[in-house]
Nucleic acid binder design. Structure first.
Lengths: 215, 215
DNA sequence: CCTCCATTATTAATATTTTAACAATAATTA
DNA sequence: TAATTATTGTTAAAATATTAATAATGGAGG
């Protein structure tokens, strides 16, 4: 990466889309793409794509374009997808189970070591060979296994407490599905999946599009 | 809303957070809040909050602040949450079931009429009294029930086809969980939930925070 | 091996978004 | 009821992000 320059969050959030389309292109045995072709696929402007990629150094070649395989690898590195992650999921309800079941998760190097729940009916069950354990064993398990990634799928009320246990025991990244703003120490990264906010955005646009046509 | 002025997507995506905190405040019997107090809660600046709200007309009062109940109602209206929506979910896998099970969905006026799947093992089962139906009956069901909202929880490969069936039969809003860019007619609203992109954003920030401290 | 072409990398211009400043005004207090 | 205070609504300034323009350069073709 070019030294010193801060990369904006907007740029980072476009990278996964490039990464996905590059994967698709590679699967189709296409090994070269220009920014304008990638623009057609992604919907971002060619100019923006070139600028985004240039934040991290020149991956393209003038007069030629970008090598899909190389660019895929490079963006993967930028996003940290060249590493393996040990993950635990807290809350083995629907969302927690869905995440545990999601195959793509494993393919990209995320290894779910365990799910945790407080419901005795769930404890002991297995999802895809992953055991649901008692939430009381959470702290010890994280320490023993040096887990670095946690997924919060608990109800709103208990999520902050769960997050505290996770971060106090060394977890450095939280993927939060609970609808609240979790407070974490400065060195911990957190990313929220806000399903409600996404849904309400949809209802807004839907309502606006259909303002005059409703019964 | 003030006439003519276009509201940016960024503004819209902040509204649900205001809405959530206002709900919390009302639950705590707090019926008045200033933009600076709301700033502390949400993390947005007071100035931004005032500007956001002013896009839709002045809901506050100088020297006083905002009435939490009124503002909650008004934002709800803007987001279209004052209406009921008939919803179907296509794909009754983990995510589809998780959405169907999510109680908050019903509280805000979303009524899930049915789930659809092509897996004979799932067809006929019920999630929360909602039947999983054969995907072959999709088109007829949408027309008969005048469904307006569709949730796509199918695998990447079939999602575009499912979306086509939905929009051809009158569905005007799609909430898409499949990791691809679905093409829809212009009058149809679509909102994507991109779990992969969210996760990769997290790995990016995590990696950057821990660049120098890894084994 | 030279020329031309395509396409990037980079700089400049534009547009958008955010933040700050302040004037207007309702509520509170004396 | 007048003065004071708090806080909005609104305008202006600053910061950021996007788009456009162009100079640089490697590759393909003759």
């Amino acid at each position: 990466m070019k030294k010193g320059k801060r990369i904006s969050d907007a740029v980072i959030r476009r990278l996964p889309k490039y990464y996905r389309y590059l994967g698709d292109l590679i699967s189709s045995d296409i090994n070269r793409i220009s920014s304008s072709e990638l623009s057609k696929l992604t919907g971002f402007t060619a100019s923006q794509i070139r600028q985004d990629l240039n934040n991290f150094g020149g991956f393209g070649q003038q007069g030629y374009g970008y090598d899909t395989k190389r660019l895929h690898v490079e963006i993967g590195k930028i996003l940290g997808l060249d590493k393996k992650y040990k993950v635990i999921i807290v809350g083995a309800g629907n969302i927690g189970q869905a995440i545990a079941n999601y195959a793509g998760f494993y393919e990209e190097g995320f290894e779910v070591l365990a799910l945790f729940d407080k419901n005795p009916k769930l404890i002991g069950l297995k999802i895809r060979d992953i055991e649901i354990k008692d939430v009381d064993d959470l702290a010890a398990f994280i320490k023993r296994n040096e887990v670095e990634f946690g997924v919060i799928c608990t109800p709103k009320e208990t999520s902050q407490d769960m997050a505290d246990i996770l971060t106090e025991n060394g977890i450095k990244a939280l993927w939060n599905f609970a609808p609240l703003d979790i407070k974490v120490p400065e060195h911990v990264s957190i990313e929220d999946v806000r399903l409600n906010e996404s849904l309400y955005t949809l209802t807004y646009y839907y309502s606006r599009n259909n303002e005059n046509t409703e019964e």
